[in-house]
Nucleic acid binder design. Structure first.
Lengths: 320, 320
DNA sequence: ATCGTTTATCGAAACGTTTCACTAAAAGTA
DNA sequence: TACTTTTAGTGAAACGTTTCGATAAACGAT
């Protein structure tokens, strides 16, 4: 592997001169600078990232830690938003997943991270922040010098969904919950309970879910077994709603007639399945752009403030 | 940041002893080894990745370079397959995208890469392979000591699709092509031409596409404008077929009746849209697992052979 | 007791950069 | 001319590891 040292030898200058020249320092005269660049190109020189980051204590890489299964529907637009912002900086993005890559944070493989991943505990993230890691969290609230939050307005979202169902006259409500560790699931559920508490003439029942299609299908199974009259179901994310569609397509129950369903997230699929899935929408692109921008500022020690992403109701055929 | 040096000081030993101890060398007596580990834990020591990889010339990270827009439908299962294999090794995966991260290869940020990304030219990849990068390519053929191929059987796939349409009695065929730079698009198109050449009683027409939904919608627009009798369309990927669905839903033309459509890839969405999209399937999970396995072997300088992934026809309602 | 072996530890070099402090020559100033 | 200032370049230390070769102590065998 050709190093700066080889270039120095070829050019008959010191290695520091090469370093300065290659980094465009004005200390070096244009003539030698050009000659050095020339030689570097000839030798196919490429800087060694490890050496550079060892010395400079930065890598110009930021990581996105996303919940683990790459079920892309949800993350695609978010990552696009992140990249849209990052493209005008000198940072680049890597997407990480799985417990093993947690090491990237303390080992300084990356300069900062965007976290939407329950496999990190709050304690773990704080530990990393304590040793200087810069983090933007999308799925929890954490007050720390080195942590910024950009979170969804889950509370409003849930309220919108529940009120929509009530408005439509539904009085028999099911809710399919999310995993216990998920902050979003927790917030959404709390808001549902608050909204429901205000009406006393309704039948309300919670079914345990975990944000997966499969758990949505299971919930549908339970609902079908107990079925007596039309019901409305609020799935705490679209993925579970789709699982419910899957299951119901094997039965005679019709969505939008016997069973009314609303989801949360407005993933791409929700406007393709039939009937289209009513849901809670928010701009994933904007979310990504915002968190990336904040992370870059955080790394540069510029002031940043926590943000909340607005949500809105999307009425579609699955709720009549 | 606490380093091995701090531990050495605290333990009253040399830094080499600490290094050996932490790496579990048998040279160090268990007693001191334990004491050193103890101290390391107390001080919250974490190794510095840059320093280590500078010295060891490896990072234990492998990169997946995927075509750039994270439209997850396609890549999700592939990445899951890759991770399934990698989980039993000491490598971990990062997903990279965009021109900027090309640097990861020559700068030795990663030990190897899986490439499915037309933003790399063949020449560029060969240049990297020449300087020692280990690569598995999924979207081209490249013979090189440091490159392994795991590619799709596009030819069979296209033939299956065309014959299916012919079998169903269709004689007016459209094909929506892919981007010029894509090897897959190219191979699929060639196979279509070969298949079509064998029949002389058919009307055959190519429409330019680029694998995006939008280009599918545009193609649909053109087809509708020329419409006289029922036609069959082979979109070279599912994404474009879905764009076609989008467009046609704004018209009175019905899929499976006026316009028959088959795609390629069998992405998740294709079994949710109505009518379900006929397509060419292959196991993305297996594809991922295979290429990851080969890459790990390649890095370890074990022998690997190029592979081809089998494809199969999936008949669905979009073709009658 | 003596000599060779093994064992536990250490010192120092090396990986490829960046950057501070320095120097010699050139240029500017009075 | 004699002085200061600027310019262009150099040397060496440092970043945090790993690892080779050396060393001293402990151990066995004779």
């Amino acid at each position: 592997m050709v190093s700066i040292k080889d270039i120095a030898k070829h050019a008959g200058v010191s290695i520091s001169t090469v370093s300065y020249a290659l980094n465009g320092s004005s200390k070096i005269t244009e003539a030698t600078s050009a000659r050095i660049r020339e030689i570097a190109k000839e030798l196919n020189y490429v800087p060694n990232a490890a050496a550079r980051s060892l010395k400079k204590r930065e890598t110009k890489i930021i990581g996105a830690f996303l919940m683990s299964d790459y079920s892309g529907n949800f993350f695609g637009p978010l990552l696009q938003g992140i990249n849209a912002t990052l493209n005008s900086t000198d940072y680049e993005l890597i997407v990480c997943n799985g417990m093993k890559s947690h090491r990237f944070l303390p080992e300084q493989v990356i300069d900062g991270a965007i976290v939407l991943d329950w496999s990190f505990s709050d304690e773990e993230l704080i530990k990393y922040a304590d040793i200087g890691c810069k983090l933007v969290v999308l799925d929890r609230e954490l007050e720390h010098q080195n942590i910024n939050q950009v979170i969804l307005d889950n509370t409003t979202g849930s309220a919108l969904a529940v009120h929509y169902l009530l408005e439509k006259g539904h009085r028999k409500l099911y809710i399919v919950t999310g995993p216990d560790i998920s902050y979003d699931a927790h917030q959404r559920l709390q808001a549902v309970r608050t909204a429901v508490k205000q009406c006393d003439d309704i039948h309300y029942q919670e079914i345990k879910g975990d944000f997966s299609k499969l758990s949505g299908a299971r919930a549908a199974d339970q609902i079908v077994k107990e079925y007596k009259e039309p019901v409305a179901v609020f799935c705490l994310n679209d993925e579970m709603a789709i699982g419910m569609y899957d299951y119901l397509s094997t039965t005679t129950y019709q969505i939008g007639k016997h069973i009314h369903i609303i989801g949360f997230d407005n993933i791409e699929m929700s406007q393709y399945i039939m009937p289209n899935l009513a849901t809670i929408d928010y701009s994933k692109h904007k979310w990504g752009a915002l968190c990336a921008g904040n992370l870059v500022k955080l790394i540069a020690n510029e002031p940043v403030t926590n943000e909340t992403i607005d949500v809105s109701l999307i009425k579609r055929g699955s709720v009549q």
